[in-house]
Design a protein around this nucleic acid. Structure first.
Lengths: 131, 131
DNA sequence: CAGCATCCATGTAGATACTG
DNA sequence: CAGTATCTACATGGATGCTG
């Protein structure tokens, strides 16, 4: 029985600076991918609807993130080639497998952010009050 | 008293730009927190060992991330106040609850990065080859 | 509607040197 | 050993205007 499992040792893990899993982690942990992927898990969504449902994202970052997700095989882009343009984004099977863990992360944030805010308050109080 | 606010839609979710859960998500999804938290889940770790085990992190980013995690109630800092200094970091219960989802994310990256690399290859091929 | 190009402000992160 | 301080390079990301 290993107390330090394969998580922390050797090649092929996220703790190795040169392992590509680092880059993968950076992609899937990026600010907007964290929101886009779980949203696409429900059903295919168009560019414009993504803009509306993800508050605060810019067209630039949306396209940029979608492209990167597409490039990594997590998202498929379907251009209906109509006028006016109609482009749908949907998850690949690989994207769905990722989404199932990302939704858990999103829900963790939604459920626990009050605790984080409370902790921040206490911490900042102690900071200003210590002598 | 409601300890768990509405989680479903509208306010209180990560898709609302003004919701603090966005900031929470940014913290827990940050490059280094993604690595530090699961590592601390195993057992308390000292600063120096974190530096060694997390390849590529700088002292600055390590301290900075640990501080932010501490401020948000995810990590506890134990200063033994000895000479030479001996400081241990460990997860709080809240931190452990987060860690259980982060380890899944880390493992996803480790398991699927070959698929991402393959997709990148195909995508880049198609890019340069399309007409 | 979808998206690209450009400019520009800010944030992030590394290197280095110094301190309790 | 465990930080802090400072400076700087670079990436991130927003605003705007234009195109198919």
């Amino acid at each position: 029985m290993k107390t330090t499992p394969e998580l922390s040792a050797g090649q092929g893990d996220v703790y190795s600076a040169n392992c590509p899993s680092r880059a993968a982690l950076a992609l899937i942990g990026s600010k907007w991918a964290l929101l886009i992927v779980p949203l696409l898990a429900e059903q295919p969504v168009r560019n414009n609807e993504l803009m509306r449902r993800i508050e605060g994202i810019s067209q630039k970052m949306l396209t940029q993130t979608l492209r990167e997700l597409e490039r990594n095989g997590l998202v498929e882009r379907h251009d209906h080639r109509t006028v006016p343009p109609h482009v749908e984004y949907r998850l690949t099977p690989l994207g769905h497998s990722l989404s199932s863990t990302l939704v858990v992360l999103d829900r963790w944030a939604e459920q626990h952010y009050p605790a984080l805010l409370a902790a921040q308050h206490d911490f900042d109080q102690a900071e200003s009050g210590d002598s």
